[in-house]
Design a binder for these strands. Structure first.
Lengths: 191, 191
DNA sequence: AGAATATGCGGAGCGGTGCTCCGTATGCAT
DNA sequence: ATGCATACGGAGCACCGCTCCGCATATTCT
C-alpha cells in the first residue's frame, strides 16, 4: 500500500460514508453516480477508488464482517454450543439485514464461488469459517440436528434476513425464530 | 372488454410468451425493450398492452396463482390439515421460485399494501385467503404452532423460495423442510 | 522559495435502460 | 372501396454503468 495522497484519503472516506447511508436506504443497486454526487466528487473518482460495485460493498461491510468473526470466537468461549450458534446467527441476520439487497448478494456469494469480488469473498471466508466451527460444536452437542450443512444454514439466514427491508424487522425476527426451532428439532422425522 | 383487434391479440399473446421465458431466465428486472424486440414488436406496443411492469408480471403469473387457489381447496378436501398446508406451501415455493426475483416482489406485495399493481393484488388475494384457511385448519388441528400468522408464514416461504435461483433448487427445498419442521414444533419454548 | 514529478481528479462520451407521446399504418365495418 | 377506430412503431428524454484521458494539485527535490 503506497500511502494515499491526502486529498485521495479524504475523498475515499467521504465516499465510503455517503455510500453507507445511500446503500442502507436505497439498496445495493443504488446509483453510483448519485453517491459520487452526494460525496461531492466526480464519478471517475468513485470508480478509481472502488473499481467494481462489489469492491465498494466489500469496503462498506468489511468492518462488520470482521466483527462477526470476533463475535463467533467470543460466543464460542462464553456460551453453551447451541446458544452460541443461535445468538451468532441472529447477529448475522441483523447485520446482513442492515443494507437493503445485501442478503441477495450474500446468497450469490455462498453458492457461486467463482463470481463476485475476491476481497469480499476472502473477508467473508474468515467469518464463514468461524460460523462453521460454531455449527459443528452445536451439532456435536446435539443442540442442532445433524442433517444440515453450514452452507444451508447460512443461506437460510441470509434469505430470511432479506425480509427485514421488505416487511419490517419484526416479521424477519419471528420467521428466524421459527427456523431456529426447526434447526433444534430432531430432523428427518417426516412420516 | 371491448374485444381486441386480431393483430393486437396476436401481439399480446406473443409478448406474454416471450416475457415468460425472458423473465424466467433474467428475472423480474429484465429489459422490457429486449422483450419487445424478441417478440418482434415495438416498445410502444408492449407498454400499451401492459402499462406497468407489475401489469405484465400479473398477466404472466395470473394463471399459476389461480391454480394455487384451486389446489388449496383440493388439498383441504383430500388431506389431513397439517399435510395439506405443507404440501400447499411447497407448491407455492416451487411456483414462486420459477421466476427469478418474483419472491422479492411477493414479499413487497404482502407487506406494503398500498404499492404495486391492483390486479396482481386482487388475484393474489384469493390465493392468500385460500392459504389462510389452510393454516387456520392446521392450527385448529394442532398440526402447526398457534403463534404464527399467515402473513409470517407466507413471507417466510417467499423468502426461502428466493434461494432457488441463487443457490439451486435443492438447497431451497432443504431450507424449506427445516422451516416446516419449525412450524410443526410447539413454539415459544425458548428457555 | 520555486520547479519537477507523480498522483488523483472530473466529466465528456458510449451504449444501455424505463417510459411517453404522437404521426402513421392497418384491421374492420359499412 | 371507403372511412374510421384502433393499434403500431420508434424518436426522444432523462437516467444508468462504466471508460478514458486532459488537467489540476499534493508532494518531493533542489
Amino acid at each position: 500500500m503506497p500511502e494515499l495522497r491526502a486529498d485521495a484519503r479524504r475523498n475515499r472516506d467521504e465516499l465510503l460514508d455517503v455510500a453507507r447511508q445511500v446503500i442502507r436506504e436505497e439498496g445495493v443497486d443504488a446509483s453510483l453516480r448519485d453517491i459520487a454526487r452526494r460525496a461531492g466528487v466526480g464519478i471517475g473518482t468513485l470508480y478509481r477508488h472502488f473499481p467494481t460495485r462489489e469492491a465498494l460493498l466489500g469496503a462498506i461491510i468489511g468492518d462488520g464482517v470482521r466483527r462477526l468473526s470476533a463475535r463467533a470466537a467470543d460466543l464460542s468461549a462464553t456460551r453453551a454450543p447451541g446458544e452460541a450458534l443461535e445468538e451468532w446467527l441472529t447477529d448475522v441476520a441483523r447485520r446482513i439485514g442492515t443494507y437493503r439487497g445485501l442478503p441477495g448478494t450474500m446468497l450469490e456469494l455462498v453458492w457461486d464461488l467463482e463470481a463476485g469480488d475476491k476481497d469480499l469473498r476472502v473477508t467473508c471466508g474468515d467469518m464463514m469459517d468461524a460460523g462453521r466451527r460454531l455449527l459443528a460444536r452445536a451439532q456435536a452437542d446435539h443442540a442442532v440436528r445433524p442433517d444440515v450443512t453450514f452452507d444451508d444454514v447460512f443461506i437460510a439466514v441470509a434469505a430470511i434476513s432479506g425480509i427485514a427491508h421488505k416487511s419490517g424487522p419484526d416479521p424477519a425476527a419471528r420467521v428466524l425464530a421459527v427456523y431456529l426451532d426447526g434447526l433444534r428439532s430432531a430432523g428427518a422425522t417426516r412420516s
